[in-house]
Amino acid sequence: MKGTLHEINGRYALTFERFFSRPVEKVWHGITDPDCFNQWYPFSTGEMDLRVGGKFHLDDGEGSIYEGIITELDPPNIFAFREVDDWLRFELRSKGDGCLLRFTHTFDDRSMAARTAAGWHGCLEVLDMVVDGKPAVWPDNMAEWREKYAKEFNQKG
């Protein structure tokens, strides 16, 4: 799994595709259940109102708490939300004995692409652990991934 960067309507989008050896419903649970979400999404603070227009709170770790607002929900295939001006979309579909996750994060500041890609790379690794019922252990290779993505996206590391 590696993220790609592209442009959509004047904004930037990071897209990741990842295969999970679990059925769609299991991965859906990992993405949308608040207890699971809190393990792999580092800014989540707790409960989630799982409906279009539903909200959940996020904490940037620097003293700012803001809302995530669910913009699209089609269980067990699509979960999308807005986080300030960023748009995040998770799409699941069955594939063989498991499912394929296509995740897209749309944002404005291209200079943050490598850092954001490295962060999502780590989040999706931890999501894989959570879906497999393993303890969430954050990888210690984030600096390495930032450098790889910076090189790929022609940015400073």
Rank of each mutant, 00 (worst) to 15 (best):
T4D: 09
N38M: 15
D60V: 00
T106W: 05
G157M: 10
P76E: 09
E152I: 09
D109Q: 10
K156L: 14
N77I: 00
K151P: 01
W145C: 10
T32I: 11
N141K: 10
E144I: 09
K134Q: 14
C99T: 04
D85A: 11
G63K: 14
V130L: 05
G68L: 01
H121S: 08
F79D: 00
P135A: 12
G122F: 06
G54V: 05
D35P: 00
G68E: 00
D74L: 15
W28M: 01
P139H: 02
P75N: 07
K148V: 14
E67R: 12
L5M: 07
V130F: 02
I31F: 01
F103P: 03
F103Y: 05
D108M: 07
A80H: 00
Y12S: 14
W120R: 05
D85S: 09
G46Q: 07
I70M: 11
L73H: 02
A13P: 02
F81S: 02
T71Q: 15
I70R: 07
G53E: 13
K148H: 12
K134D: 15
H29N: 06
I69N: 12
G157T: 09
I69M: 08
H105P: 11
D132R: 15
L100S: 04
K55N: 12
M142T: 08
E144H: 13
L5E: 05
S64T: 12
H57C: 03
T71R: 15
G96P: 08
V137K: 10
Y149D: 03
L92V: 01
P34Q: 06
D97S: 13
F79E: 00
F56L: 03
L92Q: 00
T15H: 00
A113Y: 03
D33S: 07
L127Y: 06
T15I: 07
W28D: 02
K156F: 12
I31T: 00
L88S: 05
E152D: 09
Y41F: 15
L5F: 09
D59V: 08
Q39D: 04
E125S: 13
K26L: 06
L73T: 02
T71N: 10
R22L: 11
E125W: 12
L50E: 01
R89K: 12
W87D: 10
R22Y: 10
D97V: 05
A117K: 03
R51D: 04
G63A: 09
I31Y: 00
D140I: 01
R146W: 14
G68R: 01
C123I: 06
M112C: 09
D35A: 15
R102C: 13
G157Q: 12
R115D: 07
M48F: 07
T45R: 14
R51E: 08
M112F: 08
F81G: 00
T32S: 11
L127E: 04
R89P: 05
M112D: 13
K156S: 15
D109P: 02
R51N: 04
L5S: 05
T104F: 11
N154V: 14
I78T: 15
A113M: 09
I78Q: 04
D132P: 07
G157N: 06
D49Y: 01
A136E: 10
F16C: 04
K26Y: 03
N9V: 05
P139I: 03
